[in-house]
Computed example of a mutant assay.
Amino acid sequence: MSAFGEAMVYLNDPFNWTRRDGILELLGEHLTISAVAVLAAFVIAFPIAVALGTSGRGGGAVVVVSNVSRAVPTLALLTLFAVSPIGFGNRATTIALAVFAIPPILANTYVGVRGVDADVREAARGMGMSSGEVTRRVDLPLALPLIMTGLRTATVQVVATASLAALVGGGGLGRLVRLGFGQQDYGLIIAGALLIAVLAVLTELLLVLLSWVATPGPKRFPWTSAKRPVLAASAEPTASGVPL
């Protein structure tokens, strides 16, 4: 049997899903690590990006921070954490993934808020809105598509990279891949890789749907074409007296 066939046999065995340290338990750990990392990154990056975007300053700093953060490999951070008080395990992985998720959230939120038309802000202030109300009711709704894009990018990257937790004694679906390499079981390696890939794709689709629902304005599915108005038939009478 091929390695892919062995992977299908492994995934179709209910015992591999429900046993202790099985797929469902590892999936829960994987999602927990990813969710905590993205939430921590959002709590750090979002208010900074909104403050800099509304003030119109700090664009260079945002670019520098984003580029530097992207240049640092997650595995390198995990190696540094291993010789620090942070140590091994899920905590180290969560911190490293949070650092990894900050750049797309920071950059997209800043660009979205900074790109709001100044005339729209002035009109909102002319209606008596305070600075906080302008940010909440004007800037953030208009910047929401870019904010959601940054959040989606960060989340998918984190979900796909959280498998590194297995290299530092953590949990998650990466443990299946590590175990497969340790046992030279290529079917188990493929099964773990497939689960991680499917989870990343499902995360992408879910966040695309959430972005579509949360974005203000008329809703239309991207694969549907806009309806063209139907022209009414002419009601002018003809020479015979019968309207067209």
Rank of each mutant, 00 (worst) to 15 (best):
2 S>P: 15
4 F>E: 07
5 G>Y: 04
7 A>V: 01
8 M>A: 10
13 D>M: 01
22 G>P: 01
23 I>R: 01
25 E>M: 14
32 T>S: 14
34 S>H: 04
34 S>L: 10
37 A>S: 13
38 V>W: 03
40 A>K: 02
43 V>P: 03
49 A>E: 10
54 T>W: 00
56 G>N: 05
59 G>Q: 09
59 G>R: 08
59 G>K: 05
60 G>F: 08
60 G>R: 14
72 V>T: 13
73 P>W: 08
73 P>E: 15
82 A>C: 06
82 A>S: 13
85 P>Q: 11
87 G>C: 05
88 F>I: 08
89 G>S: 09
91 R>M: 14
91 R>G: 14
93 T>G: 13
96 A>F: 00
96 A>T: 04
97 L>I: 04
97 L>P: 09
99 V>I: 13
100 F>W: 13
103 P>E: 13
104 P>N: 11
105 I>N: 08
108 N>A: 14
109 T>V: 10
115 G>C: 05
117 D>P: 01
124 A>L: 05
126 G>D: 03
131 S>R: 15
134 V>H: 14
135 T>E: 14
139 D>V: 11
141 P>H: 09
143 A>H: 03
145 P>I: 15
147 I>F: 08
150 G>Q: 05
153 T>I: 01
156 V>G: 00
157 Q>K: 03
159 V>K: 02
165 A>V: 04
165 A>M: 09
167 L>V: 07
170 G>E: 02
170 G>Y: 08
178 R>C: 00
179 L>G: 11
180 G>W: 00
180 G>V: 01
182 G>L: 08
182 G>P: 08
190 I>N: 05
192 G>Q: 03
193 A>R: 10
196 I>M: 09
197 A>N: 02
201 V>H: 15
201 V>E: 06
203 T>P: 00
208 V>G: 04
216 P>C: 07
225 S>Y: 11
227 K>I: 13
229 P>H: 15
231 L>R: 11
234 S>H: 09
235 A>S: 13
237 P>V: 14
239 A>L: 12
241 G>Q: 03
